[in-house]
Design a protein around this nucleic acid. Structure first.
Lengths: 171, 171
DNA sequence: GTAATTTATTTTAGGCCTAAAATATTTTCT
DNA sequence: AGAAAATATTTTAGGCCTAAAATAAATTAC
């Protein structure tokens, strides 16, 4: 038997533990799972409310939100980048919203490959109404966190975001 | 003009500000968007790596992860609840994995309505290999956060999770 | 014990999503 | 200018996802 000190019996921090067992990153795994659970929980809740209250899907709402932030309109490619979904996906969501009369779609002035999409007057009116309710639902979602906790969470998520970008590359 | 004190000029905390403007919850909205961005960033990165390295989809990996944690197997309903996706969705993912020989599917001993799904020996071997790489990718994702920051993030997300559950109901 | 309700799963219809290939246009290089 | 590379979008094939309806079996309430 090994007669040396029982190092595991000494309380040591997690970094050291990880260093002793190079392949063990259970803490990070748990963190990721919690992040995922948290997001899915909120996402599913918002999705349900949007459907029940306004009969709209979450992706369509999200796309409209991007356009509301940019009244001049966005190209499909920019929408794709900002929403972090594929090009083809944006094409079909835009198609649906255009046919509902909520979006306007016109060729770009400078680039004949590109199309600029923007909210119609009706789209803007509809979106603003939904956004107001949405904002309240989100507020309720975080109701049990203090302003300070929200701020801390914001800061930590920013770090996680930066770290992730570095890990996976911006491409 | 109103001659009373210019209350907005006094530095006050955000809670108070919110109370003065009942409909304003921009801070929570930004927090939610950051949470979503962070999750999508990691999810997309992991999805890409799983496909490139193991030619497997993320939902299939996630389902196998649930079963690896529970060697005795799970019913489809339990899988659905734990993965927070619909019943029908689980049905089709299980179908794909069974036909790949990675999952075993048998009627429940006590309940003839239910089916118990578990990893086959091959499925377990394949999953363990993927899980090891996955764990490393996740570790890299959070590499720029200290152990203390990870712990703080974990705690705050737990609070957010509890708050969300309360807001949306457990149903 | 039978009827009503609940629970587990599957099916259906439709929408979201990705990756990869195809098309059209613009930019860059020489 | 002309060829090559890059960019914007669409299309295609296939998988994920939901909601709602349909089955089938178990449980609950008379």
């Amino acid at each position: 038997m090994d007669e040396r000190l029982p190092i595991a019996a000494t309380p040591i921090d997690r970094e050291t533990t990880a260093a002793l067992r190079p392949g063990d990153h259970k803490a990070e795994l748990r963190l990721w799972l919690r992040l995922l659970t948290c997001t899915k929980l909120i996402e599913n809740g918002i999705r349900r409310r949007l459907r029940e209250t306004f009969d709209v899907t979450l992706p369509r709402f999200d796309l409209m939100a991007q356009l509301d932030k940019t009244p001049a309109g966005l190209t499909l490619g920019e929408l794709s980048r900002r929403m972090m979904v594929s090009n083809g996906n944006v094409t079909s969501i835009v198609e649906a919203l255009v046919s509902q009369g909520l979006l306007d779609r016109k060729p770009s002035a400078h680039d004949r490959r590109a199309q600029v999409v923007s909210l119609t007057a009706d789209g803007r009116r509809v979106f603003r109404e939904m956004a107001s309710a949405h904002e309240d639902w989100i507020a309720t979602t975080f109701a049990d966190l203090s302003a300070q906790e929200e701020e801390q969470l914001m800061v930590l998520l920013s770090k996680a975001k930066a770290s992730s970008r570095k890990a996976f590359g911006d491409a």
